[in-house]
Design a protein around this nucleic acid. Structure first.
Length: 259
DNA sequence: TAACATGTTTGTCG
DNA sequence: ACGACAAACATGTT
């Protein structure tokens, strides 16, 4: 479900759902998602919610709750949803459910400062932007890997996933297999503008309290991801495989690099 | 039914 | 050190 913009939307929603509330219990309905438990949250008040890459961090009086939703995790206030793996019960507010059919999500209850310690090595934040072309060049330009692979490397830039990478490259008219180290300054600038445009548009699409990405049977909000035709040139969208993941591109708009 | 899935980690090999 | 690849995690969707 989530990449940077969805986690950001979840973080903002979490602040509305839990901000200033006192925790009455952290219910663990499935033992696999609760990976770390260094504190008992009972009685603590939620002081803030933030995001770092694809990690969501809830700050409490004497603890931090760090969540990674991985592929299929979601957060939703209420009770009785399908696939609830944990539930944060609150005083005078609906509980917040961690939902994850696939059970790959991670929940860490850490001592203060624990999240930052665990996130050492995570790359810099592209959002909120804008970031200039030189910013992207400084972080990705040393990689001789395909540009898409570098974009998704969380140690270089934090938060971009498989969909964002395809969408940003399409907007920038850059080919996914192009070596990152071979981009020129104009191409870095195009990447910078495309990233800013994609991230701000994806954020503006999010509705308060209804964080949605690709919804089953719903509209596809993307330009190339799982699309048949390029909305810019009407040409066919093609798919290739990189790092075992599908990359979508418009070969007309994103010409393959020479050599 | 087999292939695929918005993510990350670990191990292997070049 | 860098990078490509496969498998693993565990299960729903197409």
């Amino acid at each position: 479900m989530p990449e940077l913009t969805e986690v950001e939307a979840f973080a903002q929603a979490m602040l509305r759902w839990c901000g200033g509330r006192r925790v009455t219990a952290l219910e663990r309905l499935d033992p696999t998602v609760l990976r770390t438990e260094e504190r008992d949250l009972t009685g603590m008040t939620v002081r803030g919610v933030s995001r770092r890459g694809k990690h969501l961090i809830v700050t409490l009086d004497d603890a931090e709750l760090m969540v990674h939703l991985r592929m299929t995790g979601q957060l939703l206030p209420g009770e009785g949803a399908a696939f609830v793996r944990a539930s944060l019960r609150l005083h005078d507010a609906a509980p917040v459910q961690l939902i994850d059919p696939r059970r790959l999500a991670e929940l860490h209850v850490l001592a203060p400062g624990g999240a930052a310690r665990r996130l050492v090595g995570l790359g810099d934040e592209p959002f909120p932007g804008p970031r200039p072309g030189s910013w992207w060049r400084a972080r990705l330009g040393g990689a001789r890997r395909p540009l898409k692979s570098a974009l998704m490397d969380q140690a270089l830039v934090a938060g971009l996933g498989n969909i964002a990478a395809s969408e940003i490259l399409w907007r920038a008219r850059l080919h996914p297999t192009q070596r990152a180290s071979e981009l020129n300054d104009g191409e870095w600038e195009r990447l910078a503008e495309a990233a800013e445009a994609f991230l701000s548009k994806a954020m503006s699409t999010q509705e308060p309290d209804r964080v949605v990405y690709i919804s089953r049977g719903g509209e596809n909000p993307f330009s190339v991801y799982q699309r048949a035709r390029c909305p810019r040139c009407e040409g066919p969208v093609t798919r290739l495989s990189q790092q075992g993941r599908s990359t979508f591109l418009c070969p007309r708009c994103q010409p393959a690099p020479l050599g």
